[in-house]
């Protein structure tokens, strides 16, 4: 399967917020209710379509425990996007965002796109962090924001795809050096920049955010 671009993502955030479930929902379209601690880092991949272009997403799911922090740090430099996840039913996971963000900002390239995600939106009755608080935090720190549910799949596609859109936008603005793979971006095989602008011939159907916008 050829692609126009390849983006590397990482998923970060406290343990138990649903990082692995988000990845599984996005790559396999299923939900795993049993909490299975991620040891180190797991990997998943999927193709998405943005502006008629095939974009391959390679996603590394990290372990949130403190003991794995130094391992996680090694992934910031090479990532083009990061999903920073908290659990809307556990305030402490929201409170820890600052420390995650500091880590990310310190170790990543300055252009890394960070998407803030309030997960478990299906558990409205147990909500502990207001959506507005998430929005405010995102605004204050210049992040994109979404609430998702890895369980019902609500907004999961959108979260990954909107991140890709933002990266794509930055590429078009020339903010990313696409030839330096250390930025977490790669141009597809037999693809050059000039040919990558304009409508794609591919008709592979993958989630396009335009057609199904937010539901949470």
């Amino acid at each position: 399967m050829t692609y126009a671009y390849l983006f590397k993502y990482i998923i970060i955030g406290d343990t138990g917020v649903g990082k692995s479930c988000l990845l599984l929902q996005f790559t396999d379209k299923r939900f795993q209710p049993v909490h299975d601690l991620t040891i180190g880092v797991e990997f998943g991949a999927r193709m998405v379509n943005i502006d008629g272009k095939q974009i391959k997403l390679q996603i590394w799911d990290t372990a949130g425990q403190e003991s794995f922090r130094s391992i996680t740090r090694s992934y910031y430099r090479g990532a083009a996007g990061a999903l920073l996840v908290y659990d809307i039913t556990r305030r402490e996971t929201f409170n820890h965002l600052t420390s995650w963000l500091e880590d990310a900002r310190q170790h990543s390239s300055s252009n890394m796109v960070i998407m803030l995600i309030g997960n478990k939106s299906d558990l409205e009755s147990r909500r502990d962090v207001k959506r507005e608080e998430g929005e405010a935090f995102a605004r204050e720190h210049g992040l994109i924001f979404m609430e998702t549910s890895a369980k019902t799949a609500c907004n999961v596609e959108e979260a990954f795809i909107n991140t890709a859109k933002e990266i794509y936008r930055k590429i078009q603005q020339g903010l990313f050096d696409v030839h330096n793979e250390a930025n977490g971006i790669k141009i597809g095989p037999q693809q050059c920049i000039s040919s990558s602008v304009g409508p794609s011939t591919s008709q592979r159907n993958s989630g396009d955010v335009e057609s199904n916008s937010g539901c949470c």
Binding site: I39, G40, V41, F43, F68, S74, Y75, E181
Partner: peptide
Amino acid sequence: NGAIQKIVAFENAFE
């Protein structure tokens, strides 16, 4: 060492 193996792979070792 699985953790190091993954980081090395992440850093485009395969390529």
